[in-house]
Amino acid sequence: MPTISMTVNGKSVSAEVEARTLLVQYLRESLGLTGTHVGCDTSQCGACVVHVNGESLKSCTMLAAQAEGADVTTIEGLANGDELHPMQEAFRENHGLQCGFCTPGMVMSALDLVQKNADPSEREVREWLEGNLCRCTGYHNIVKSILAGAKALRG
């Protein structure tokens, strides 16, 4: 079994895993970081989005071994102690979630959008969310949350 090493939420981690282990499996089962969810297994739903070297990626469609040496950030790595990240706070303020299952992927995906486009239009937010599905909210409040989060991050 190959040994893999990476940085997850600022901590160095290393483990022996089966070659077929997916990144999301490694995060959830080996590291116990269960905030990253598996909704569809097939890159459709986006509940598993994490950042790998600063880019949002679907961790259900990437082998853990492909993240060798990478810097990975999950939803657990965003808040600063008790203080929520502005994007998390924006979701909370704007009722951007109901059951919460898609939420980590939505937040991680939104953060990649605002680092590429600090002031997105509503349409740009909606287009960016093409790869993230939600079944509770109807998306309106998610879009509102992301626009508010982007505004807060611009300061």
Partner: peptide
């Protein structure tokens, strides 16, 4: 009055407790 939901804090920080977790 808008009321913040108690469960949002855990859902937003990856601390939800779903069956597969």
């Amino acid at each position: 009055v808008a009321i913040k939901r108690v469960e949002d804090l855990r859902f937003l920080t990856g601390n939800g407790h779903y069956t597969d977790d």
